[in-house]
Design a protein around this nucleic acid. Structure first.
Length: 550
RNA sequence: GCGCCCAUAGCUCAAUCGGAUAGAGCGACAGCCUUCUAAGCUGUAGGUUUCAGGUUCGAUUCCUGAUGGGCGCACCA
């Protein structure tokens, strides 16, 4: 029984009597409680068509709806012509029973059951540890992958990297220089080298093992050692954050399979590329017609090496061919223009882009003591993601990165995140969960039979705080739907805040365990269990833990 | 210079495909622990949603322009 479908069907048939056929009945949940539980703007939308004024038309519609019925206690016209529906408390009591029955599955949807999704994110080349600049994307992808799974998708988590490009050579040269410096302090460090401490660490490990035997061996050993160290570091950080990628896709495999060459030939055949100054250019200015200032871009350098664009295009074609129903990329705002060029190339080769969606997130400013923390790549010690996790904890970091809409700049207040107190918004949610767990533990002592009591009278739940808590718990699946279709996990957090708030209010006004009134205690304990379920399921989506004690 | 994104309470941010009296947290002020977790609850103060127009029953949301901030404009990725 879904109340929205119920009301929607009623409105549809009432409109049909007036000669209006429509499939799109917009129903929303009014912010203000006095405006009912569900509201529709249908009368305002169709009054003109019916040759009537909105309020009059609304009155007429209500008269033909056949209410009250077993779920709807009443409907009234309000404001400019809204129809506000009031839902019976028993509907929400039924929902409560449903939450308890579904438990860990409550909120899981089957709208995308049988479909597959591919989410590619992080995808940093193995030239160093992940730094805090990668944090938002890392956390966001984790939550979005969860969100997709909750709507029924089978999700492939993928990491794309290139260990053959210029960046890796730079790493190799940097490690080599640090290695030489161990026994030749005057050995010059490359100007564009990676100056992080970890490079010295890698060099030190090589020296430990081979002493100075590697001086004349070339870059290969240094590159391998660097890549291995960096990937271990990256995987370690990802694991700490609870992320395991199913596929690590190496760009090199695209060369080995000949697909890069094929794409290049196809571009030429289609007249989309040309040679100039010994390089091969893609006619991006033609492919991106709606972008006036688009310029042609180099896809193969005069040295014969492709730029990142070409393999990126081929990589996306590979993902399309793998047959996913949804292909998601997550990029920072600094890639906003470049991904468009890549997709334009894919489209130029005749592929359909409709399965591909791109999530862009804005940059993060880390603030400490009221001042922005500098994140310059030139600095010897960048703030690594691991250090951030050490400083504020995994849950807090995950929460802070995900709590805001991706499309706005994020200010990450390190002092606030470190704070183990009521100032920290993570704890507000986790505290509600821990508090419920405490009560349930107490109940096992005081009323151990509650677990096995078969007939629980939910009609005893009638206090205003109990009703509004039941109401908020009942919309969790709708929130998951909305968050998933917008790909915005922060909507879950906003919702969980309401759940926690409603729970705390309920707690303060209603004693749960009361030996004088066991029947009510049983019902309230069930309400606690349902609240715990929703909080825990929500935490799972956004990727934080559900502590039993705090 | 050009392109994209953003602008909401003192601060950090919400606001359901355009909906009703724009909401939270922090900070400020005033209360609530001999009873299940006070990391909690209750109350007060705080707004011309940057500005100027436009579209309509109705705009924080859509359009135009201005102002301010972020990001990008490589034969780096």
């Amino acid at each position: 029984m879904d109340i929205k479908k119920h009301i929607s069907a009623k409105l549809k048939s009432a409109l049909k009597e007036c000669g209006i056929e429509t499939d799109s009945i917009a129903l929303e949940r009014p912010k203000e409680g006095s405006n009912g539980d569900i509201s529709s703007n249908a009368a305002m939308m169709f009054a003109k068509k019916a040759g009537s004024k909105p309020r009059e038309f609304a009155e007429g519609l209500i008269a033909s709806l056949g209410i009250p019925d077993s779920y709807i206690t009443g409907a009234e016209v309000a404001g400019p012509g809204f129809i506000n529906f009031f839902i019976s408390d028993n509907y929400f009591r039924d929902k409560l029973a449903e939450i308890l029955e579904k438990s860990a599955e409550y909120g899981r949807l089957d709208v995308n059951k049988g479909k597959t999704a591919n989410l590619e994110w992080v995808s940093a080349n193995p030239t160093g540890p992940l730094h805090t600049g990668h944090g938002r994307q890392t956390a966001l992808g984790k939550a979005i992958a969860n969100l997709l799974e909750w709507t029924g998708y089978t999700v492939t988590r993928e990491y794309y990297y290139n260990d053959a490009g210029k960046q890796m050579e730079t790493l190799a040269r940097s490690v080599y220089a640090r290695y030489r410096q161990i026994f030749e302090p005057e050995f010059p460090f490359p100007e564009d080298g990676y100056s992080g401490e970890y490079v010295k660490e890698i060099a030190g490990m090589l020296f430990e093992k081979y002493r100075d035997e590697l001086v004349d061996t070339g870059d290969k050993k240094f590159k391998e050692a660097g890549e291995e160290w960096c990937f271990n570091s990256i995987r370690y950080t990802l694991k700490r954050m609870g992320i395991i990628h199913n596929i690590f896709f190496n760009e090199t495999s695209l060369y080995e399979s000949g697909k890069i060459k094929e794409a290049l030939e196809e571009f030429e055949k289609r007249g989309l590329s040309y040679k100039k100054d010994d390089a091969i250019w893609l006619k991006t200015s033609e492919l991106l017609k709606d972008k006036k200032d688009a310029k042609d871009k180099v896809i193969v350098k005069s040295t014969g090496e492709p730029t990142y664009r070409l393999p990126d295009m081929v990589y996306h074609i590979d993902k399309i061919k793998r047959g996913y129903d949804l292909i998601l990329d997550i990029f920072g705002a600094d890639h906003r223009d470049t991904y468009k060029e890549v997709l334009a190339g894919v489209e130029g080769l005749g592929y359909d882009l409709s399965k591909i969606k791109v999530i862009i997130h804005q940059m993060v400013t880390f603030v400490q003591d009221g001042k922005p923390v500098k994140m310059s790549k030139r600095a010897d010690n960048v703030y690594s993601l691991d250090e951030l996790l050490d400083d504020v904890g995994v849950d807090v970091a995950q929460f802070f990165f995900v709590m805001r809409s991706a499309n706005t700049h994020l200010e990450f207040d390190i002092e606030l995140a470190k704070e183990q107190s009521d100032k920290n918004p993570v704890f507000y949610l986790q505290y509600a969960h821990a508090r419920i767990c405490g009560i349930l533990r107490n109940a096992l002592e005081a009323l151990p039979e509650y677990k096995n009591t078969q007939s629980i009278n939910f009609e005893l739940l009638k206090a205003p705080e109990e009703i509004s808590l039941m109401k908020i718990l009942s919309i969790f699946p709708e929130v998951v739907t909305a968050a998933a279709s917008a790909l915005e996990p922060h909507k879950i957090i906003t919702y969980l805040n309401e759940v926690a708030e409603n729970y705390h209010k309920f707690y303060h006004n209603n004693r749960v365990i009361n030996l004088e009134d066991k029947e009510t205690s049983y019902a309230r304990l069930k309400l606690c269990e349902a609240s715990k379920t929703v909080l825990k399921n929500g935490f799972e989506i956004i990727g934080i833990s559900a502590p039993e004690r705090m």
